[in-house]
């Protein structure tokens, strides 16, 4: 195709210039989000208010933190179904430690470590264990959920002073989940923004990020380039597990209670949906943090808008499903046209 490709090169450059800021894929999602926001601003009084927008920001934060982790896993060519369980386990474990009188930082560290270890186990099973990650993490979904049930004996965990938490620790813990930075920005949103910023920098600007893309896009070529596929994937799962734990801990701090049989059930599907809407591919090698943020926002804004417009929650579920299909379909079709 040599001659043909050279001829078509200017066309590509022009298209690149139009969407230099985002790249073609994010542009589509961004336009969809903007359109959604415009419609909601016109259709409702309350959408375009600071209170509501910050509220949306808080509501999507936990989903967003996990979606950032999922972006790593999907780009590396794997998938993680166990994150809802990690979310529950880490949140409950941290809550129990604080109730048990632990100081904040050790309790947080322990909770995050739980997530990291479970993530690493997912990674080991999916690489050296030679299991498809779909299967490995499906198993871990049940195992970790079961572990959380055993840990809590199936009883709700509530974090409060009466049950033994240190008052200062409790205040700090609750601030993480419920507080607002400068009394304005929800702390959850601050965590999400920080996680996203770091992840963006890692994915776009470090050798680790490079390797994640390489192993997902073409495993053999990555190996020939000296990249240790197993190590990269295990790290991607570890990042995912840690971020799922962080989200679970923040959820615990927000409520502040949880129950092993209920917390975070089915969350993995929302997270995968948001990440896919943002342009990550289940086949690996594709995805960006910016796209994932946009995907998370589309789901969040959509939910919020439907609530504001008084649409029944049943219809909301249906609409979310449609968005997933339409968003991914548009992406696939546009890419096929572009060759």
């Amino acid at each position: 195709m040599s001659a043909a490709d050279v001829q078509s090169a200017p066309g590509r450059t022009r298209r690149g210039a139009l969407s230099r800021l985002f790249g073609l894929r994010e542009t589509g999602v961004a336009l969809a989000l903007i359109a959604l926001c415009v419609v909601l601003s016109l259709a409702t009084e309350s959408f375009l208010t600071q209170t509501n927008l910050l509220n949306v920001g808080r509501q999507v934060s936990l989903l967003g933190i996990m979606a950032v982790g999922m972006t790593f896993v999907l780009i590396s060519g794997e998938v993680d179904l166990s994150i809802g369980s990690i979310y529950a386990f880490a949140g409950l474990a941290t809550g129990m430690l604080i109730v048990g009188g632990w100081a904040l930082l050790p309790a947080l560290a322990a909770g995050l470590l739980c997530g990291a270890v479970i993530g690493a186990i997912n990674g080991l099973l999916s690489t050296y264990g030679r299991l498809p990650s779909l299967i490995a993490t499906l198993g871990m979904l049940s195992i970790v959920r079961g572990a959380a049930l055993i840990l809590t004996d199936g009883r709700p965990v509530t974090v409060n002073e009466r049950l033994g938490a240190d008052p200062d620790t409790l205040a700090a813990f609750e601030f993480m989940g419920q507080g607002r930075l400068f009394d304005v920005i929800p702390m959850q949103l601050v965590f999400f923004a920080a996680v996203a910023a770091v992840a963006w920098a890692v994915l776009a600007g470090t050798t680790f990020g490079f390797r994640v893309f390489a192993v997902g896009g073409s495993a053999k070529a990555a190996r020939i380039s000296g990249i240790r596929i197993e190590a990269v994937k295990i790290w991607a799962f570890t990042v995912m597990g840690t971020l799922a734990a962080l989200a679970g801990i923040l959820a615990m701090a927000f409520l502040p209670s949880g129950q092993a049989g209920r917390t975070g059930l089915g969350l993995e599907l929302d997270v995968i949906a948001a990440t896919i809407i943002g342009g990550a591919s289940l086949a690996g090698g594709e995805g960006t943090i910016l796209g994932t943020i946009l995907g998370v926002l589309i789901i969040g804004v959509m939910r919020n808008g439907l609530v504001l417009m008084g649409v029944s929650p049943f219809v909301q579920e249906l609409m979310i499903g449609l968005v997933i299909i339409v968003a991914v379909a548009i992406d696939k079709w546009s890419r096929r046209r572009g060759g």
Binding site: G205, T206, T207, F208, G209, F210, R211, F213, A214, G216, G217, S218, K220, A221, A222, I224, S225, G226, I227, G284, G285, E286
Partner: peptide
């Protein structure tokens, strides 16, 4: 299925096997 890092750019394909030389402390 072996030669190209097919989802990546030309530049990234060139440097894939020499990441150490084009990075500092893991930062590209």
């Amino acid at each position: 299925n072996g030669g190209m890092l097919s989802t990546m750019s030309v530049a990234h394909n060139v440097v894939a096997s020499t990441l150490g030389a084009v990075s500092w402390a893991g930062i590209l």
